[in-house]
Computed example of a mutant assay.
Amino acid sequence: MIHKLIVLGILASTSLAAAQAPPPEQPGSASIAAAEQLFNEARTLFDKGDHAAACPRFEASYKLDAALGTLLNIATCYEKLGRLASAWGRYREVIALATKVGDASRLKIARERADAIEPTLPKLTIRARSSIAGMVVTRDDVPVDPAVLGIGIYVDAGGHTITATAVGRKPFSTKVEVKGSEIKVVILPELAIDPDYKGPAPVATTIRLEQDHFDPGRTRRIVGLSVSGVGIATLVAGFGFGAVARATYDTAFEDDLCDRTTLACTPKGQERTDRARSQSLVANIATIGGAAMIAGGVFIYLTAPSPGRIAITPGVEGGANVSFGGSW
């Protein structure tokens, strides 16, 4: 699912207008002629090494006549230009179309190039601290689908501008530089209320999650308490075995089965003292094991993540504030 979203994000950033437009009509002869001319100009520039000028012409040619060969040239041009994420997205398009029409040679080329450059692609993750109804997030002026927020998306190396806007809120904008195969995360702050906003009062509610999970450490604390509880029970059992062992040992002397001075015992007395030693061994093992479990349970409990909080505040000033949270 994540891989599909990555592909979606790349294609949206490289050809959003084409993706939103209805399927193109069959090109006429004039469009094909113009597409051919643009393609030839692009090839000439490409062969001269002027990839920055060639790529837009390839794109213009493809809009007039969506030829598979032109699409492959676009991908190659972007790769030469260093826009590897854009190239990877176009190669993925070539793979899909070549598979559909059965063009094995172009399919092989596109698949090899896409596989080769994918490990080198940088990723950019955009996360929002708050979710506001109607909030629009863009990357380089291209809207970012809300489903993509929080997911690392392949982007071209270089500078990117991230913006967030919402009705009745002050806009946020930041620039980020992504290099090589770097993984970068941009966290959008909660958009502040715009005091100069004169339009209708927004009724949307902002839900702010101060942590990704309300209580990520709850299970760990339960385990810690459970382990400590078993440890306490085992420790008590150890003390009990110890008391029984001592009583058994003492009765061997109280019943005159053993002599306290010489420690000599009758066969029956020896049997009783041996039983006492076995009980003492069990008591020692239970006591040590119980203490270890108590210590382990306490460690698990104390190292569990703290409970999170959920704060719900209205989208405009005034109204009720509701918050859930706490710790134990």
Rank of each mutant, 00 (worst) to 15 (best):
P189G: 04
T174P: 01
L188N: 01
I151H: 15
T161F: 00
I183A: 13
I153S: 09
G180T: 07
L149G: 09
P195N: 02
I153Q: 15
A164I: 04
V176W: 02
P171N: 07
L149T: 11
V167T: 14
I183V: 12
R169T: 00
I193W: 02
Y154V: 09
Y154Q: 13
G168F: 07
T163Q: 12
I162H: 07
V185A: 05
L191D: 01
I183N: 12
I187A: 08
A192R: 06
T174F: 02
L188D: 01
V178H: 06
A147Q: 15
T161R: 15
G159P: 05
L149D: 14
K179W: 02
G168N: 09
D156M: 10
S173A: 13
G158E: 09
G159C: 11
G159A: 15
Y154W: 12
A157R: 14
V185K: 04
P189E: 05
K175F: 06
I162C: 06
G152C: 10
D156F: 10
D194Q: 04
V148A: 15
V186N: 02
Y154F: 15
D156N: 13
H160G: 09
G180F: 04
V176M: 03
A192G: 06
H160N: 07
I151Y: 10
T161E: 14
G180W: 04
K184V: 14
L191E: 00
I187D: 13
A164R: 11
K175E: 12
G158V: 12
Y154M: 09
V186T: 02
G152D: 11
A157T: 15
K170H: 06
F172M: 04
T165L: 01
D156Y: 08
E177I: 13
F172I: 03
P171V: 06
V185F: 04
I151P: 12
E182D: 12
V178Y: 02
F172P: 05
I151K: 13
G168T: 06
L191C: 03
Y154T: 07
K170E: 14
P171E: 06
V148W: 12
P195M: 05
V155R: 09
E177D: 13
A192W: 01
K184M: 02
A164Q: 08
L149I: 10
T165N: 09
S181Q: 08
I151E: 14
I162V: 15
T165R: 14
